[in-house]
Amino acid sequence: MDGNRTPALEVEDLTVAYSDQPVLWDVDLTVPVGDKMAVVGPNGAGKSTLVKAALGLVPAVAGEVRVFGRPFVRGRGEIAYVPQRAGLEWDFPTDVLDVVTMGTYGGLGWFRRPGKAERERARAALDEVAMSEFERRPIAQLSGGQQQRVLLARALVQSAPILMLDEPFQGVDAPTERAIVAVLDRLSGEGRTVIVVHHDLQTVPEYFDSVLLLNVRAIDAGPVDEVFTEDNLRLTFGGRVGVLAQLAATVDRAR
């Protein structure tokens, strides 16, 4: 692999349709290695669908996804995925360490059980998100922020070169938000690629290097200071009153 010149992720002409209604139209996207990218757009813009389609979790009608220049195949451990917290059944009878250990299953193959080594890796990941003292806690007893940290730790354990996170800041407390940002910073500092579905426009310039503005099709993508403009945001979010006023302020602050 020729280092940084091969992009980590290339999405080409990706179209996804649910029962013949397109939710993503011909999306192109190139994410360089080590990039920290936000995926931003209004509700129903297909942000989560883009992540899921890139992972092959929803079928694409057209288009291709390449990872480090090769067609994407699930199960090679190249992409770690953090799903939306609200989609999970948190009343499941298991504890924090067990959930995080699930991140090692991909590398374990079908029949091997996680052993001491796997649990040690899970503990290290928990340490990184400051959840070590909760490792035996049933997940039903976690706060929203703690749940999110656990899911992040599960992805960290996969030690994948690419991480995709779906709304990791949704409904979490401020310390958790800071902790997640710190982890993402460190990852991209190590040359790992981070792609985050994000709903809070105000924090985009602060948290991310680049941004994809998505509204069914890709409006624009690239470095935040080039792409995150009022015009582009207007194009992305349409004429939503209220949002626009907020946008102007946000963009001003970003300048």
């Binding site: 002409d13 179209t15 013949d20 397109p22 139209w25 011909d26 009608v61």
Partner: peptide, 20 residues
């Protein structure tokens, strides 16, 4: 309908792709 719509959707996808 799916057969008709698939072609129809494909035509629209082609158009969007070209325009893009």
């Amino acid at each position: 309908r799916r057969r008709g719509q698939r072609l129809d959707l494909a035509v629209r996808m082609l158009l969007v792709h070209l325009l893009h």
